[in-house]
């Protein structure tokens, strides 16, 4: 018996901000904090909080470094995160009849 698509939806991505972050990161190798913040139109604190939550779940990898003397943060999907997100989007499409 196959699992119904709604059972394959990942609760980690049901929050709209986290879903947007995952969707945005799924398009790039890596994005810096500022680009991500500007693209998604959210504040530093909201982005920081949700990125940390996604990192804790193992979906996102965060890298901190410097460009010149300025600190900069980059984020990218982990292989597990990309796989989990792809599965979630596929399940969403099946649930809504788009698949």
């Amino acid at each position: 018996m196959t699992t119904h698509a709604r059972n394959r939806l990942n609760d980690d991505f049901s929050n709209p901000v986290r879903l947007s972050i995952m969707g945005a990161l799924n398009m790039v190798e890596e994005a810096d904090f500022k680009s991500l913040k500007e693209a998604l139109g959210i504040s530093d604190s909201v982005l920081s909080r949700h990125l940390s939550a996604l990192e804790e779940k193992g979906h996102v990898k965060i890298r901190k470094g410097f460009v010149g003397k300025r600190p900069r943060t980059w984020a990218k999907l982990s292989p597990e995160g990309r796989s989990a997100f792809t599965g979630h989007v596929q399940a969403l499409k099946e649930v809504t009849g788009l698949a």
Binding site: S14, L19, S20, G23, A24, V28, A39, L40, G41, L92
Partner: peptide, 13 residues
């Protein structure tokens, strides 16, 4: 709503 939000986020990115 998730699919719509996703499409918007990807267009922005």
């Amino acid at each position: 709503q998730q699919l719509a939000a996703l499409a918007q986020a990807q267009a922005d990115m």
